[in-house]
């Protein structure tokens, strides 16, 4: 269990590194093939739509900080609660600060890598 938890904490830190490097291809490997992401509340995206949204989002050079608050691991499935802040720019190019509490479901692959199955950044409150 502790090994899995270690991997899970590493997951968040590696994800943030890839995000802040604007490295879409690396970031995309943190998602399962069927992953659902909900960066705009009420608008879940999967597959190509998810990838296009994320690629565009990263193109603005956003910076993220993320602090895991709680994690629950059962077998190859985990629920991760994360406090996050993103500094980015809005459509007009002005600085914009986004923040939320992520409620994320992760799956452990056979390669011992945790990946998002559900990425719900505004999952709480």
């Amino acid at each position: 269990m502790s090994q899995l938890t270690d991997n899970l904490e590493k997951h968040t830190s590696l994800y943030v590194d890839a995000f802040n490097a604007g490295d879409f291809d690396t970031l995309d490997r943190f998602y399962t093939e069927e992953a659902v992401a909900v960066w705009e509340p009420g608008k879940p995206l999967t597959g190509q739509a998810r990838r296009e949204y994320q690629r565009e989002f990263l193109a603005r050079g956003p910076r993220m900080t993320a602090v895991p608050r709680q994690s629950f691991v059962t077998g190859d499935t985990a629920l991760l609660i994360v406090d996050w802040v993103i500094e980015t720019i809005d459509d007009a190019g002005a600085p914009e600060r986004l923040e939320g509490v992520g409620v994320d479901v992760l799956r452990l692959g056979e390669d011992a890598v945790w990946r998002y199955a559900v990425d719900d950044p505004y999952g709480q409150g």
Partner: peptide, 12 residues
Amino acid sequence: HAYVAGDVALIG
């Protein structure tokens, strides 16, 4: 809300 991703689902 409810999201299904393959063999796992998140429900609120």
